[in-house]
Design a protein around this nucleic acid. Structure first.
Lengths: 221, 221
DNA sequence: TAGTCCAGTTTGAACGTTCATTCAAAATGG
DNA sequence: CCATTTTGAATGAACGTTCAAACTGGACTA
């Protein structure tokens, strides 16, 4: 029966291709932003990058601004997803959680010129647009506090966990920035610097070694 | 003869008001960018903020883009000027130089919503515009290397001066970012965190005490 | 099976808006 | 009186959105 679960629930533009097309347009928006910047990203350019006509953008999104916001939200969700996955896989000890943060931050899935260009471009306009600011600042606040919490678990009482954690957060947040300057960014170098930071600040706890018996406090010589 | 050193050297639009008007337009551009963002900064808005007619912009600058680039260069030069002044005044020991960097970075002359909004907005578009990128990346590179050099002078051999210096640089660079989020930013808190970072990383050398033997410097306890 | 129908999808040109630039004319002031 | 400065409306280019028309493919009928 019900030959048409489809027909019954179908609003205009709600066919099975809908989410595919939306993602296609988001990918095209990312391409355009990475290639031409946010200011020069036009409906025509997005449509061209997607291989679709201009009119489709307003068919699948409520205008250009809605697509741009969806693009920002998509990139943010990818950042979040990769990080959550890495932290869930890692041991629960704070040292390993921090290592998972490093590994996920510089995972090429999210740390690549396309995504960092998008994040950077929106961040630059976020001051002037409440909708961008909502996404950007929620993301940064959550990650900053998560990082500081881990630092608090590790830090001696005679160092300032908030200051060190904040610096570590901004280190990871900012290193990928000069991506296109050289056209290529060395992710391994970024990880090395980040780990060197932890090793310098928490001598004895870093670098990590895969031994450890119980809670995973790694050995040090 | 020579009644006019003026007339002889005067190109069109080169009267004595020229630099005043240019600065007036730059200030208006800063106002517009801080208030509406770079994307929504139009010739009309800049002219209105300056209290001048639209046509004057193209009279004193080679179009809107030239004004925007001049605005970025002006803000960058202010950053540079305040920093250079502070470092020249401070003792030459690397600890005091780092303290001067903190003090100048969070000097309200340059660390205010207007200037950070401008810097942030241009930085967001820099990937896509070579002229913005030139200014932004030269600035950041110079300051990053200067910071790392100071860290090298202080750091033990068993810590990574580059990693720590890079983190410190990005800490100072990024803290002012969420300026408009709260509409107000606590510069004293920023300085406290920055100094706490140095004290945590270089225990024994920070916090600074005004003793020391050599040259003069401001008292602080 | 072949033919018909139709909701869903796609096109792209037309439209109206916004914007930077231009420039003839007016204003300014020494 | 004239060089310099300022005005602001006109101009044309660029852009986002709209929408009538065309197209698609699966479902239904004969």
């Amino acid at each position: 029966m019900a030959g048409s679960a489809a027909a019954a629930s179908k609003l205009p533009g709600e066919g099975h291709h809908r989410s595919t097309r939306r993602q296609q347009l988001i990918d095209a928006a990312i391409t355009s932003i990475a290639e031409h910047g946010l200011a020069r990203t036009t409906v025509a350019r997005v449509a061209e990058a997607a291989g679709l006509s201009q009119g489709l953008l307003s068919f699948y999104f409520d205008g250009k601004q809605a697509l741009l916001l969806a693009t920002l939200e998509y990139v943010e969700s990818e950042f979040e997803r990769v990080r959550r996955t890495a932290m869930a896989r890692a041991r629960t000890a704070p040292e390993w959680q921090l290592d998972a943060i490093i590994e996920s931050t510089f995972d090429p899935t999210i740390c690549n010129p396309r995504y960092t260009a998008v994040w950077n471009a929106f961040w630059g306009e976020a001051r002037a647009r409440a909708d961008y600011m909502r996404v950007c600042s929620a993301h940064e606040t959550a990650q900053l506090e998560e990082t500081i919490a881990l630092f608090r678990e590790i830090a001696d009482p005679n160092v300032d966990a908030e200051a060190l954690g904040t610096a570590f957060f901004h280190l990871l947040d900012s290193i990928p920035e000069p991506f296109d300057e050289v056209g290529h960014f060395d992710l391994e170098r970024a990880k090395r610097i980040s780990r060197a930071f932890l090793a310098s600040v928490f001598r004895g706890r870093f670098p990590l070694t895969p031994d450890a018996t119980t809670q995973a406090s790694p050995g040090e010589q």
